[in-house]
Nucleic acid binder design. Structure first.
Length: 525
RNA sequence: GGCCCGUUCGUCUAAUGGUUAGGACAGUGGCUUUUCAAGCCAUUAACAGGGGUUCGAUUCCCCUACGGGCUACCA
């Protein structure tokens, strides 16, 4: 589609502030952002707060927070300076400069404002009236009751529900009289019934709609606020949006928008309807499916990099076998022509795997600072990440992080994986101390042996690899099966049937504590 | 009900008018190993159905089925 804007790419993410931002909305924002970055365009945040009943206080801040978490910087429109995206993060996307206060001043940046639709009421009124003057819209005074009745009748007759044009029959004098009398009214589109409206969607291709089936949509509500249809078209035009990137559910109302552009005599932007994310039951992802607020995933211990990567692959892929992508690689590869038409299902298992991959890819130092940052951020409500290591020194933490890293899938896995290291008294069933093929007494002997081996180790040699060598050498020289000696010792020091590596654990515990725990085990037998 | 969109392994998906229909997650089996995890190797598993078009269709067209979305003075 030819662009009227000298090919300058301008896209907007235009959520309505009705609560915490949904995974699906954010994925749409991500596509738009990626598209903007790929084409060196502008990513705009516009707030569509035209439904006064549904607006939820604090939503805009939450939206900003979600965008910030994923590193989707806003170039123009609504921003908050309480949240700062740092390009110098230790780990590419992690918000190191996060500030907890949510009462920061929202600011608007850009020359096309205001970017809150509630601040543009006079603009919409002007354009709605312009359409009336041009004969493409009309005043409607029908009451809710009357509309309800029309709908019921149509339903009974199995007709498509549509406004029946009741107020279309009013002549100019009558309209003026009603208007002057302060009668409640809306402005509706007047849609010609002939022909069809053709959309050439960037993703869906050509889609045809019969004009006779299009409803006379309300443009301006009786409270003076515009409906989405008017507001979006007017703003997208005024803000010189080049590509309208939005979810599939908007496809059916697109002909109304196309008609509006024609009525105004405006050039049309390109439209790209992206597939909707479905839950495991194949219906639109919603609260029934558990976590749908994008920020819930932060609380659940997912990394923004992983979330970003995963979301990018829901309905899009680069047509190669590569699946792990950095932000820059995604920017380089992403384009609308590779977006799928079918609706993908959100698969938490693949997200988990991907998150684990990102965790493993980090250096232990990076992971440590990420864990520390996240623990600090979620302090209070979710200070569970560090668990028993909440007040540990950085030095002590380093080895623990390394030990947990391989088996962590999410950040919140850290505490349960490492708790046993800090417990004063381990609580476990003595039976699990005994490896297969050994009797209780034999097991006891093995633990005794371990104490002997340990007693000969100098304090300065108390270190993972030296411990490993000492024990393995002992086994070899004395013809002891590794499992028969090492299993009981490992259970003794961890209290767990399944645990991290014995020598890493003993290293962290220290000689004294290790001996204590082995003695404790012996006494249990 | 009407309108619109969609349909390749369970899931995310690739490819092609002629292929053993490829990869990843999950599953299963094995290796490794002090256990678990990780890692490595192997493996199960898909073109919704029916008509065309064609020498040949998973691929192009039509129909059906199924799934989804929309059908508000909500977005």
């Amino acid at each position: 589609m030819a662009s009227k804007h000298n090919n300058k790419i301008r896209v907007r993410f235009a959520p309505s502030p009705t609560g915490a931002p949904h995974v699906g909305n954010i994925r749409t924002a991500l596509f738009a952002w990626l598209f903007a970055r790929h084409h060196k365009g502008t990513f705009i945040l516009r707030i569509e707060d035209t439904d006064t009943d549904r607006v939820v206080a604090g939503s805009v801040e939450t939206i900003l927070e979600a965008l910030d978490w994923l590193g989707l910087e806003v170039d123009e429109g609504v921003k908050s300076f309480e949240l700062q995206v740092s390009s110098q993060r230790l780990v590419s996307l992690w918000p190191t400069s996060f500030k907890k206060e949510k009462n920061g001043v929202l600011q608007e940046v850009g020359e096309y404002g205001p970017y809150f639709q509630s601040k543009r009421l006079d603009i919409y009124k002007k354009y709605a009236e312009e359409l009336v003057a041009k004969g493409h819209a009309y005043y409607c005074f029908c009451s809710e009751e009357r509309l309800e009745q029309i709908r019921k009748e149509q339903e009974a007759k199995k007709l498509p529900p549509k406004y029946n044009g009741h107020c279309l029959t009013l002549d100019a004098a009558e309209v003026k009289k009603l208007l002057d009398g302060g009668e409640a009214h809306v402005i509706r589109m007047k849609i010609g019934h002939e022909g069809e409206t053709v959309l050439n969607d960037v993703i869906k291709g050509e889609v045809r709609f019969k004009n006779s089936l299009i409803d006379d949509q309300v443009l301006l509500k009786s409270d003076g606020f515009p409906t989405y249809h008017l507001a979006a078209v007017v703003d997208d035009h005024l803000m010189e949006i080049s590509h309208v990137i939005r979810a599939d559910e908007w496809l059916p109302s697109t002909p109304k928008h196309l008609l509006l552009y024609d009525y105004f005599g405006w050039a049309k932007p390109a439209f790209a309807h992206v597939p909707i994310i479905l839950g495991p039951d194949k219906t639109k992802l919603s609260k029934r499916h558990g976590a749908v607020s994008i920020l819930d995933y932060r609380e659940a211990g997912y990394l923004p990099e992983a979330m970003f990567n995963y979301l990018a692959f829901l309905g899009w892929n680069p047509k190669t076998d590569q699946e792990l992508f950095s932000r820059d690689e995604l920017i380089k590869e992403f384009d609308l022509d590779k977006v799928n038409k079918a609706n993908p299902i959100f698969d938490i298992k693949k997200l988990n795997w991907m998150n684990g991959q990102y965790i493993k890819k980090m250096t232990a130092n990076e992971l440590q600072s990420v864990i520390l940052n996240e623990a600090k951020r979620s302090e209070g409500s979710h200070g569970l990440i560090l668990g028993s290591f909440a007040n540990a020194q950085d030095d002590a933490l380093k080895k623990v992080v390394k030990l947990a890293q391989e088996r962590m899938e999410k950040l919140v896995d850290f505490a349960p994986l490492t708790d046993f290291l800090r417990q004063d008294k381990l609580d476990y069933d003595a039976k699990i101390l005994i490896p297969k093929g050994l009797s209780q007494t034999q097991c006891k002997t093995q633990l005794q042996t371990a104490l002997d081996v340990i007693s000969k180790i100098e304090a300065g040699d108390w270190q993972e690899e030296k411990l490993r060598k000492t024990f393995l050498d002992y086994c070899e020289k004395n013809n002891v099966k590794r499992g028969e000696l090492l299993w009981p010792v490992r259970v003794a020091v961890t209290g767990l049937a399944n645990s991290p590596d014995l020598f890493a654990v003993m290293d962290i515990l220290g000689k004294k504590k290790s001996i204590e725990r082995i003695r404790e085990a012996i006494s249990k037998l």
